[in-house]
Amino acid sequence: MKPTFFDANLCFGRPIRTVYQPAKTAADLQRVMAHAGIAKGLVWHVAQRDYAASDGNRLLAKALAGRKNMYGCWVILPPQTDEIITPDFFRRMQRNRIMALRAFPDYHRYLLNRVVFGKFLDEVTERRIPLLLSLEKSSVTWPVVYQILAEFPNLTCILCDIGIWNSDRFTWPLLETYPNVFLETSLLSLEDGGIEETVARYGAERLLFGSNFPERYPEGAMLAIQHAAIPTADKKKIASANLEGLIQGAQL
């Protein structure tokens, strides 16, 4: 049984430092997805991080127009500077098929906490809009993840690229404490038994398939899920159903 894959962790655009054969455009990324067997993607443009969140968000929105198997993530900055978060922010998200957010606090030089994002993240929490935080892409460190979840315990938070070395000592306490925390699986599936043990303890509902393309080969994470020692129904949840549910549940 080959599950339908909905990838939570896809990026396109040419980064400031080269990677091997990136998808330069959204159309290129669609071809990569079709080749690998990935049906849908929650994507971002690397210029949102490397260049500027504002122009990057616009590039992403423009690239997604008419691409029905892709949803976007906008990158946020502190509301006080008015660079990204404006009164019509959520309406613009809806208009542009932007269903989730990403943040790169270290790289973009701000603090991700209640002082900076209080009212905004309260509304994001209320609207059940997922916030994706990467532990690898110059995004966040574990203490920041722990702090933001302590301050916004009901936030829908997807932890991506959770680390090359097994991260159970970091992730399992979060899964135990915060019901709206999810793990993206590109590096969880790298761990021997990572998928199986996490499912056994916290349920398949907490995992979302991701490939981390273009840094990684999608086939690694896909083969690991397709042949994980878990029930077929759980594979379907991880491969696509859980992310479909989060996207549908977001209120924009």
Binding site: D192, A221, L223
Partner: peptide, 15 residues
Amino acid sequence: YPWFSHHYYIGTVLG
């Protein structure tokens, strides 16, 4: 192994 998964690595070589 047992740090990393065989299926993951097999998949990357195949990819």
